[in-house]
Amino acid sequence: MDKLFIRGMQFYGYHGVFPEENKLGQLFIVDVECTLSLREAGLTDRLENTVDYAELYKDVKEVMEGKPCKLLETLAERICDRIFGRNERIDEVRLEIRKPNPPIPGHYREVGIVMERRRHG
């Protein structure tokens, strides 16, 4: 299967468990990788036979900058649901959400999650 991706998307959001995250907000970095057949697009050179990067970015942005969630897991589920709901060509989504500066003590580069989902049915 083929893959289409956008890496390093940056959004400012108000997600998190701690009150300061909901009040002050923070930077989130998101990578999305979609598994689908790109054959038809490759043979026809037509955008309607693939997934539009701009629309994919917009879908991720609307969730990331939308209603706050406590957990990255909830954000990731919402993004995956949105992607599957708007792109019937996509069979699988791999999503990575990172917080480079969460309000937790310690020395680390970033924290985050990776979620992989397959289309149901």
Rank of each mutant, 00 (worst) to 15 (best):
I97P: 04
T35A: 14
G25Q: 07
N49Y: 12
L95P: 00
Y12N: 12
E55L: 08
D31Y: 11
R86L: 10
N101T: 01
L95A: 08
M64L: 12
R7M: 10
R39D: 14
K23D: 13
R46P: 12
M1G: 13
K61F: 06
I83L: 09
E40T: 07
Y12V: 14
C69F: 15
T44S: 15
H120V: 12
C69A: 14
R82Q: 10
R78W: 02
I79M: 01
E55I: 04
I90L: 05
Q10G: 08
M9V: 06
K99G: 11
R98D: 03
I79V: 11
I113C: 06
D2R: 02
P19N: 05
E62R: 11
M115D: 01
E65R: 04
L27K: 13
E62Y: 10
K3I: 07
N101L: 03
R98H: 11
E96A: 12
T44N: 15
F11V: 05
Q10D: 10
V63S: 03
V60Q: 03
P103R: 00
R109H: 13
E110W: 12
L27R: 14
P19Y: 04
L95F: 04
L47Y: 10
G13V: 07
A54N: 09
G42L: 06
E55K: 11
G25T: 11
E40S: 12
G8L: 09
R117A: 07
F5I: 11
G112H: 02
E48N: 14
E62L: 13
E33V: 02
I83R: 00
Y53I: 03
C34N: 07
T35Y: 05
E96M: 07
E92L: 04
Y57V: 03
T44R: 12
V60I: 15
Y12F: 15
E65N: 10
Q26G: 15
V60N: 04
T74P: 01
N87I: 00
T35P: 00
D81E: 14
R82A: 11
R89T: 01
Y12G: 13
Q10H: 13
F18C: 08
Q26M: 07
V30S: 06
